[in-house]
Simulated scan of single mutants.
Amino acid sequence: MMAEPVGNDGALVLLSGGQDSATCLAWALERFGRIETLGFEYGQRHRVELDCRASIRTGLGAIDGAWADRLGPDHTLALDALAQVSDTALTRDAEITLGANGLPNTFVPGRNLLFLTFAAALATRRGLRHIVGGMCETDYSGYPDCRDDTIKALQVALNLGMDARFVLHTPLMWIDKAQTWAMAERLGGAPLVTLIRDESHSCYLGDRTHRHAWGFGCGTCPACDLRRSGWERYRAGVSHA
């Protein structure tokens, strides 16, 4: 059963077009009275994810009329400078490897810090206090800007620097990909699972020509591996244990 929204509180959801952010959008639609979404174009190799955002929003509205009523404007911001200052496999045509620092070269330094800072600035203008992101410490590649400590520290910094009372929500922080699929099922049943499987995009290479049981992607990059293994464990019922 859908929970009652938290009064008239509004939330801004970081919607990349991927599985995690689509699930977070459904999570927010269940909890807040009005929702706006924000995506970033930063020269990402898998820019096709941005093209998935509209169908995700439309599909969520079709699943639940109350969600459609709560879903407000969508925003996209260009952060081209991020690609200019980074040298990563997400912003360059480069092979995905492990760097000397122990992090995969898909890590874009400062990305989530910038995303949340710009989100807070937009939320200020739009009168939104809650900011929702899909950062996760459980199924991730060791990115330091996905850690819970990072998000908590940034919430403090944003509230001090903007003299605000923002709340940064990360509903996926302590769950894995199988549990993320299960969360989607709890929120919107089979229709939401199907929507996220078919319309969201995770593949780092931007491949939407190969269709798999778990969705579109190259099938070999780290993002596809995580999504596939999570789907298989979800379908096997592991996430319900």
Rank of each mutant, 00 (worst) to 15 (best):
F40R: 03
F40T: 10
F40S: 02
F40I: 05
E41F: 06
E41Y: 04
E41A: 14
E41M: 01
E41W: 06
E41H: 12
E41V: 04
E41Q: 10
Y42N: 01
Y42R: 02
Y42Q: 00
G43I: 04
G43K: 03
G43Q: 00
G43F: 01
G43W: 00
Q44F: 04
Q44T: 09
Q44D: 04
Q44G: 06
R45S: 00
R45T: 00
H46K: 01
H46C: 07
H46F: 05
H46T: 06
R47G: 14
R47E: 07
R47M: 02
R47Q: 10
R47T: 12
V48E: 11
V48I: 15
V48G: 04
V48Y: 06
E49P: 03
E49F: 01
E49A: 12
E49V: 08
E49C: 02
E49I: 03
L50R: 12
L50C: 06
L50W: 03
L50M: 10
L50P: 05
D51T: 13
D51G: 06
D51M: 10
D51Q: 13
D51K: 11
R53P: 10
R53D: 10
R53I: 08
R53W: 04
A54L: 09
A54P: 05
A54F: 06
S55I: 07
S55F: 01
S55R: 14
S55V: 11
S55K: 13
I56C: 05
I56S: 09
R57A: 09
R57G: 01
R57P: 01
R57W: 01
R57Q: 13
T58H: 13
T58P: 03
T58M: 11
T58K: 15
T58E: 15
T58Y: 07
G59W: 08
G59S: 11
G59H: 11
G59D: 13
G59Q: 13
L60E: 09
L60Q: 12
G61Q: 09
G61H: 10
G61S: 07
G61W: 05
G61K: 10
G61V: 09
A62D: 11
A62S: 11
A62L: 10
A62K: 11
A62N: 11
I63R: 05
I63G: 09
I63F: 01
I63Q: 02
I63P: 03
D64I: 00
D64C: 14
D64V: 00
D64K: 13
D64A: 13
D64S: 15
D64G: 05
D64M: 08
G65T: 14
G65S: 15
G65A: 15
G65E: 13
G65N: 13
G65Q: 14
G65F: 02
A66K: 12
A66I: 12
A66F: 05
A66E: 15
W67V: 09
W67P: 05
W67D: 02
W67N: 00
W67L: 07
A68V: 04
A68F: 05
A68C: 10
A68Q: 14
A68G: 11
A68D: 12
A68T: 03
D69H: 11
D69T: 14
D69V: 11
D69L: 12
D69E: 15
D69Q: 15
R70Y: 03
R70C: 07
R70G: 08
R70S: 09
L71V: 07
L71Y: 07
G72N: 02
G72R: 07
G72A: 12
